[in-house]
Design a protein around this nucleic acid. Structure first.
Lengths: 178, 178
DNA sequence: GGAAAATATGTGCGTTTTACACGTAAAAAG
DNA sequence: CTTTTTACGTGTAAAACGCACATATTTTCC
């Protein structure tokens, strides 16, 4: 049952070697590692010139990117329980960086949106990130960048499409805490 | 200073539009979101048939992928302080999933490696992940998959290359806690 | 139309996770 | 060979987190 030569036919006749998938997974792990580096956030926040709790930074960025956005969706994108995110949003409100507003079509949803101050901050963060990305990707050709972006988008959509699923709390909702 | 038409020349004459970079960043955010979903880990762990604390799972996978690996490097890949990871490794040792061994050439480093039991577990996790990936990427052609993997690897290397850097704690080592 | 189920959000509260301060040991730099 | 840097670990206290539970709104279905 070693997987070194494991090959499996897919429904439409293509084959995916384990090796290729592992290679892909390894690259993704590296990317996630970089994105999860706290120093990375720290640099951006410092550039933006504002002190912000570690846990709040990714939320602010997500609100900027995907807002107006509900707490549950925000929690999903952030990989945290919605109760945790709810509290963190509360802190962002206190800091004057975001606001809540009831969704027009579904009054259960209290959308989170950036305030002017929050927008100013994410703008500076975007600039900092863009600067870093330019430095990292400066030697890529325009065509290559286009292909990269296309593949990334397509891959993201593919894995986003995996049924939320498998996991979907069954037996108990409890997490598997030891 | 709006960025809608912001274009900047790079050292070798190419241009990177902000739009393209933003598009790329958004895709990366989606990917990271999926990877960070706790339910995802939960599913894998359940598949592997063993209860494992949430925080321990990513470490086990990293040790399997990159081990033997030192605590500091593990901490970097995991985006946590090395003291945190040190303790978590201790727990993995207690669970009999990993072992520590002093590096032969640098006795400061206590490499972390999988035990047979740990390897058996990561093998099952790998199978579960592979199954998910096949489901998600089953309709990609072999050529496309190759390109995807290549681009991912190249992008990972590019951002891994960003000097650890900018951030590098200066004034104080203290994190920017509020 | 209305009961039942599903979804979105939020608070109480105990647990888990995390990082800073500090110390030791080994290697690298000078 | 002294100084600096790097790797690792423990004490301690705070931050982050999630489950149980409750409310409000929408959706489902008979």
């Amino acid at each position: 049952m070693t997987s070194s030569e494991n090959v499996q036919n897919t429904h439409d006749g293509h084959t995916l070697t384990s090796g290729r998938l592992r290679q892909l997974h390894e690259a993704v792990l590296d990317i996630v590692a970089v994105m999860n580096r706290p120093q990375r956030d720290a640099f951006m926040v410092r550039t933006a010139g504002i002190a912000l709790d570690r846990a709040l930074f990714p939320l602010l960025v997500l609100v900027g990117k995907f807002g107006p956005i509900g707490v549950v969706e925000l929690a999903d994108r952030n990989g945290r329980d919605h109760t945790t995110v709810s509290r963190q949003v509360g802190r962002l409100v206190e800091l004057g960086l975001v606001e809540r507003q009831v969704n027009e079509h579904d009054r259960r949803i209290r959308e989170v949106i950036l305030t002017d101050r929050g927008r100013a901050m994410t703008d500076r963060i975007d600039e900092a990130r863009e600067s870093l990305m330019r430095a990292a990707l400066g030697d890529w050709s325009d065509e290559e960048l286009g292909q990269l972006a296309t593949f990334m988008r397509r891959y993201a959509d593919a894995i986003l499409g995996i049924p939320d699923h498998h996991n979907a709390g069954d037996q108990q909702n409890r997490q598997f805490t030891r």
